[in-house]
């Protein structure tokens, strides 16, 4: 997704001279294509995330559309008040980009686990929140973010995630869920890089006679609550999937949706993490599996529940 992101950013910057990129000294061997092509619109501000968002806001006050880039918590929590006061309150086109969502950097330790960003970011006013499910969505998200007039948060994984939308996607319209797989039984709503896992689970469930729909939910804010309410009438069970704190995350969003939690038909199962404080080396795969986010656990939950 990192590669798709930077390629898409170079592409939009080619025709839109307002587009800038700032990094907090991260993104070695990722950001070079932008830096080399647009040195006048690129700055490595050093390891100083508060200053990075303040500078991005100042640049935006002077007419620029500014992407900031760092790892999970550094991009978001370290400079939370700058995002809130400087970018959001002034309604500026500052686009915060975090890589290493969830347990992407599981083995690096707790400081590098990006777990609470969705609940926290979506609590901020005016800030769009997007977590693309694959590189195709990530590239489209960049274009959407440049079009989006105000501040935004883009949550990315790492490099090398599988492509889910093999036939491509035309667009990633604001708030819209994307139907990835039709199904009449339960429905999986996956955000971010849980999407490939959702598709794998649905494929296995098909073999077990459980016809499972899969939706990608790249937009967490604005969020299409009406679409979710419709799904809750249509499907027997809704299983949300996110690699992060589920309270206030996608699971929370669906539960908050009128008709989402107490629909005429659907039960809600919220897959995600709860106050996870790991103290050992845990790979992304093992971390997911230990917390109900592996394919087997999802298949089991849906087979039993539907």
């Amino acid at each position: 997704m990192r590669t798709a992101f930077v390629e898409a950013l170079v592409e939009v910057a080619r025709t839109d001279p307002r587009v800038w990129l700032l990094t907090g000294d991260l993104g070695f061997s990722v950001l070079e294509p932008f830096a080399e092509r647009f040195p006048e619109r690129y700055v490595n501000v050093g390891v100083a995330e508060q200053n990075m968002v303040g500078i991005a806001s100042g640049l935006a006050m002077a007419g620029k559309v500014v992407f900031t880039y760092s790892i999970a918590n550094f991009a978001t929590l370290r400079c939370l008040e700058q995002i809130r006061n400087d970018a959001c309150y002034h309604d500026l086109p500052v686009k915060v980009v975090a890589v290493g969502a969830g347990l992407t950097y599981g083995s690096l330790g707790y400081t590098h686990h990006g777990l609470e960003d969705i609940p926290i970011m979506r609590a901020l006013p005016r800030l769009a929140v997007i977590a693309p499910g694959d590189p195709v969505e990530a590239a489209l998200a960049v274009r959407e973010l440049v079009r989006w007039p105000g501040p935004a948060y883009l949550r990315l994984g790492k490099a090398g995630e599988p492509v889910v939308h093999r036939d491509g996607l035309a667009e990633l319209p604001a708030s819209k869920l994307i139907l990835v797989r039709e199904g009449r039984g339960p429905a999986i709503l996956a955000t971010g890089s849980m999407l490939p896992t959702a598709v794998d689970a649905a494929n296995q469930l098909a073999g077990l006679g459980v016809d499972t729909a899969v939706y990608s939910v790249p937009w967490l804010k604005p969020f299409d609550a009406a679409a979710v309410a419709t799904l809750a009438r249509k499907h027997s069970l809704i299983h949300t999937l996110e690699e992060g704190q589920r309270s206030g995350g996608l699971g929370g969003l669906v539960a908050e949706t009128p008709g989402g939690a107490s629909a005429p038909r659907a039960r809600l199962v919220r897959g995600g993490l709860d106050d996870l404080c790991l103290h050992e080396v845990v790979s992304q795969k093992a971390g997911r599996e230990a917390n109900g986010l592996g394919v087997e656990a999802i298949v089991e939950a849906l087979r039993k529940g539907s």
Binding site: G54, S57, D86
Partner: peptide, 10 residues
Amino acid sequence: LSLGCGIALA
């Protein structure tokens, strides 16, 4: 001062 940096940089 960070806002000022951004404006001055632009």
